[in-house]
Nucleic acid binder design. Structure first.
Lengths: 210, 210
DNA sequence: GTCTATATTAAGATAGAC
DNA sequence: GTCTATCTTAATATAGAC
């Protein structure tokens, strides 16, 4: 489906990477319309015309970021293993997803910005790739619940809750930091412990009745 | 602290309300920088200069929206009653917060946009009003947990998880709709049932050990 | 590949008539 | 209170020299 990777010189690779990194920084904070090429060029350390030598337009830069995003973003869910034990599998998923929020907060915010706006530029990918994967994993979770190996919770909404609780630490980091009031301190260890306990409790299957 | 409410004619009240409603619509989707006065004026059904007769600037419109927001937004948490039963109190809080997301999705997105950008315009209010209320209610939850009437979960992170899971249905509505694939249908009843079950399970106190 | 200079449109805001 | 016209700056993008 994707075009073949074009051959690029070292300098092209370097500058494209600089631009994409700078654009991620700016788009993830300001959204598409709020970001300006000036801000991105400055963050990349390039002149605006030089930046536009590498990408034809603002839209093209944004599109390239979004394109690469969803695949990485769904990796943790892909890793949910039908052959594993339900409870550890789901707790592992939560842990991986939280780790993504910690390691890639800008990607999380870029995605959040896009969805907040109504997903105008990523709608197609969500309808196909995202929905297919979620439906597949929701079916797996439903099967586990049906076998009594997991609490009987709506699988789609369970996945939503995992997305929400983990991405919260990237998307709402400013608020988390202010509320916890320990502004230098890393909130992720406590978040990981909390989420593990939350889901371990909520997902444990009902005891077999006599 | 607030200035006294200025006296206003009927036409002033009507037009200010039209402008604020239109601005909420636009700011909540596009963020502060992404929104334009042209979009807001058009949505309000007023000319741009006429709109600027009622508000001195774009910033002033946005500031007025944010100012009114936090109070309403925190009402559900304020309702957490120290005299009530812990489990029903918390489930009631979740229910009220979800109801807010359903009834005021634009307010939720406005808030989300502001935090995503690093809370530049609402930082002060969060440090004072928000933090004070959260700390107060977290202490209450900690007390309940200490008395064995609630599961021993970190109260601050518990509150974060409730914010995240409920606001998700407003902020990420586009994605929720696409993933559920029933595009006309209201996802809130199922969400309410799921969240009630999730928190009822997770928050139930450990059984007393012999 | 990179730069300066600039064309073009959009956006925030104001002037002044009515 | 509302409008048309307009000022000013910012923003996307391009031309063309080096």
């Amino acid at each position: 489906m994707s075009a073949p990777a074009p051959r690029r010189t070292r300098i092209q690779k370097r500058n494209r990477a600089l631009i994409l990194d700078a654009a991620l920084e700016v788009f993830s904070r300001q959204g598409f319309r709020g970001a300006t090429l000036d801000q991105i060029a400055e963050a990349a350390g390039l002149s605006k015309p030089n930046m536009l030598y590498y990408f034809p337009s603002k839209e093209a830069i944004h599109a390239e970021l979004l394109e690469g995003l969803l695949d990485t973003w769904l990796d943790p869910l892909r890793g949910l293993d039908p052959a594993g034990e339900p409870l550890p599998e789901l707790c592992g998923y939560v842990r991986r997803k939280l780790q993504m929020a910690r390691d890639f907060p800008r990607e999380s915010r870029l995605f959040a910005n896009e969805i907040l706006q109504g997903a105008p530029r990523i709608d197609g990918l969500l309808r196909t790739d995202l929905k297919a994967l979620v439906d597949e994993k929701a079916a797996l979770i439903a099967r586990w619940a049906g076998e009594g190996r997991l609490a009987p919770l709506d699988p789609h909404h369970l996945i939503f809750s995992i997305w929400a609780t983990t991405q919260h630490y990237a998307d709402f980091a400013a608020q988390v930091e202010l509320v916890l009031g320990e502004e230098g301190r890393d909130p992720f260890p406590a978040a990981a412990a909390f989420l593990d306990a939350l889901y371990a409790r909520a997902l444990a299957p009902d005891r077999a009745q006599g």
